[in-house]
């Protein structure tokens, strides 16, 4: 799980171009959206693409993204349970 969490943080930083943010800066339990990393609806869409591309998970409902991207821990758990690659 720790490996997945690190990989996920690195991917998020890369895809969302979070300049100056290092993996250790992202709290595993902190919310990714709103006050946490300051992400918005476009970032949620980017993460949906990441889910499909890297893990073969296809989300049809963008609203569902909000639950899955609650925090790094929730996100990682969802991936480990649903990944197809």
């Amino acid at each position: 799980m720790d490996e997945l969490i690190l990989e996920l943080k690195q991917e998020i930083i890369k895809v969302l171009n979070l300049q100056g943010v290092k993996p250790e800066d992202i709290d595993n339990d902190a919310p990714l959206f709103g006050d946490g990393l300051g992400l918005d609806s476009i970032d949620a869409l980017e993460l949906i693409v990441l889910l499909e591309k890297n893990y073969g998970i296809k989300l049809e409902d963008p609203g569902k993204g909000r639950e899955i991207f609650g925090s790094i821990n929730i996100f990682a758990k969802y991936i480990s349970e649903n990944r197809k690659k």
């Binding site: 895809v15 476009i42 869409l45 980017e46 693409v49 499909e52 591309k53």
Partner: peptide, 9 residues
């Protein structure tokens, strides 16, 4: 496939 919304926007 796998297109990023940011570049479209």
């Amino acid at each position: 496939k796998f297109l990023q919304p940011t570049f479209f926007i």
